[in-house]
Design a protein around this nucleic acid. Sequence first.
DNA 1: GGCATAAGGTGGGTTTAAGTGGTTTTTAGT
DNA 2: ACTAAAAACCACTTAAACCCACCTTATGCC
Lengths: 148, 148
Amino acid sequence: MFQGETAVTLDDKGRVAIPATHREAVSKLSGNRLVITYNPFEQGCLWVFPESEWEQLRDEVNALSKAKAVHRNLQMKLVGAAAHVEPDGNGRVLVPSSQRSAAGIEKKAVLLGMGNKLELWSEQAHLAKIRETISEEQITEDMLDLRF
Amino acid sequence: MFQGETAVTLDDKGRVAIPATHREAVSKLSGNRLVITYNPFEQGCLWVFPESEWEQLRDEVNALSKAKAVHRNLQMKLVGAAAHVEPDGNGRVLVPSSQRSAAGIEKKAVLLGMGNKLELWSEQAHLAKIRETISEEQITEDMLDLRF
DNA sequence: GGCATAAGGTGGGTTTAAGTGGTTTTTAGT
DNA sequence: ACTAAAAACCACTTAAACCCACCTTATGCC
């Protein structure tokens, strides 16, 4: 179970260090094998899955009917983009350059623990999201019972 | 099972290197024989099948009743256009010039692993697709249960 | 509170494989 | 037979994987 926000930096080669707080979980869940894909719902954000989690999602996504454009789009962004990576001796993974540029992630980024996966945001995109507060109109039925 | 996104470049002759990540799968599935056709659903994208996969799809498509215009259209784009290619000593295949120009694929392109086939996108068309995020209105019933 | 130590993070350098460019030879089409 | 394009071959450039060393920050102990 991943949680927590960490400011990270990519070096010139596109490597990011997996924060120490997540290392144990990553090695335990998937033997250090990670999969990087696009976040199909957000700009400037990549998803980082432990391989075991990824395989389940991949199979579900592949099973969606290809008759719908939105399904094919999802398959493209998830299965089509899925890059398998493994940390080097220093706990860093290489983020593929095509994904870096498509997501606009350069030097400064933010890594979020989001339950079953990690999210890698470009610093700007992340900041923009955090700055948007939730308005009353957006509040759903399900949110009313939360123990805020 | 193909997955993953790779930025590729076509040279002046129209040759693309099959990325090393896919070479093993290609040689194992079909003895290095590939078939290139149009993607009937998307502009700026070609489909690349291992020959074994292709033969199954071809037979299914050919079996469709020719009474419907959409069937004939599909047969034209898939069976009619199918080009058989084999990588050279450096792992490169020649993309036929007619297909290159029809799909608008010039120098820079992206190769996606999409399960049973590969997709070759023009860089622009691919970027445009990735940049379109999925909005709430597009989400289907089937997508609600995915383990995102 | 200050110093020592260890762990996490960062910056390269080196090696090896992958990708790219170009030349020559063959084949096919006119 | 001649032209043009594709196949085969050869050489070079670039990027990824691996490795090592250093810097910085947090932690514990004196």
